[in-house]
């Protein structure tokens, strides 16, 4: 009986020792030297593996950033500037500040404004519906409302509003990882500069139909009337294909365009009503001034063009 115990102990110890030697040898032989900075960069990254930076995951991002050492292209949208600063410290290079972005919903066609023209009965996926036809409302550009974007969001930063049928972005949670943008077959979602004091202005419509057709399809569709573009002092608003688009780089957030829209479809986030009221008054005064100026010029021109009648 004792013999059995001894043999067992001995043979198992022998196997264990042998395995240890083999493991040691293998780990030496096949050791891969990886830049230790990669691990340190990875440690400061959010490690959500969302792919928002364009790399397949955080490890790949760390590898790429260590390899290139250039922070002007590679940027972690989830961590933002604080994280990139830490990354810069690890790499010993200068950090590049980038404006934070956020996803915005460029459609306001809620149930109330956009009447259903048919009932969709296929698989509940926007991608499938978009492939089948132009949608269950008259508007071929609008949100399909089945929430592919909500499914795509890894940060629980979106939900579908049951009253409007449109997605809503939760500002504090959105990391601008771009997943929802990629998932939307109608390109309703767009990354937009988060803006100073979290304020941003955009046109919540993508309808490119002629004004009258667009309004038939959706009561708040942009008709391309260009009133907002005329009101803009910074030429930030362009009209293309019957659709007004704001260039966020040019927009100075003066909010003077907001109430020029007769369907109130220029969205101004985090502006107080007083501020909007102010902006509106400001614009009206300015327009008044400009109008007077024009009239004066006109009067002047008329006066100049008509010299005193000869006798």
């Amino acid at each position: 009986m004792n013999d059995v115990v001894i043999y067992t102990v001995l043979s198992l110890t022998g196997i264990g020792l042998l395995a240890a030697v083999v493991l040691y040898y293998v780990s030496k032989k096949f050791h891969v030297t990886e830049d230790e900075r990669i691990a340190r960069v990875e440690a400061v990254l959010p490690n959500t593996n969302c792919g928002g930076c364009g790399q397949p995951g955080c490890h790949a991002f760390a590898e790429a950033v260590v390899k290139s050492g250039d922070l002007s292209v590679l940027h972690c949208p989830v961590g933002g500037n604080p994280v990139m600063k830490q990354v810069a410290e690890v790499l010993g290079v200068k950090a590049v500040e980038k404006d934070p972005y956020i996803a915005v919903v460029r459609c306001s066609g809620s149930f109330e404004y956009r009447k259903k023209t048919n009932v969709y009965d296929g698989a509940p996926s926007c991608a499938i519906a978009a492939q089948l036809y132009s949608g269950d409302t008259g508007c071929a550009y609008g949100c399909l409302g089945m929430g592919d974007c909500v499914v795509a969001c890894d940060f629980e930063a979106m939900y579908m509003d049951e009253k409007t049928g449109l997605p809503v972005i939760i500002e504090d949670k959105c990391t601008a990882c771009n997943a929802c943008v990629k998932s939307c077959p109608k390109d309703i979602l767009e990354l937009w500069p988060k803006g100073k004091k979290n304020q941003r202005i955009y046109v919540a419509c993508l309808n490119e139909e002629k004004g009258s057709t667009a309004r038939k399809e959706c009561a708040v569709a942009c008709s391309g009337c260009a009133k907002c573009a005329e009101a803009c002092r910074y030429e930030a608003i362009t009209i293309d294909h019957n659709l007004a688009t704001i260039d966020p780089d040019k927009c100075k957030l003066c909010a003077e365009c907001i109430d020029t829209c007769d369907v109130r479809n220029i969205v101004a986030t985090n502006f107080s009503p007083e501020k909007l009221q102010q902006a509106s008054e400001h614009r009206q005064k300015r327009e008044e001034r400009e109008r007077k100026k024009r009239e004066e010029e006109k009067a002047q021109a008329t006066a100049n063009n008509n010299p005193e009648p000869t006798v």
């Binding site: 259903k116 023209t117 009932v119 009965d121 089948l132």
Partner: peptide, 9 residues
């Protein structure tokens, strides 16, 4: 004619 048609793949 009042109720909407159904569409599905």
């Amino acid at each position: 004619s009042q109720s909407l048609l159904t569409v599905a793949p």
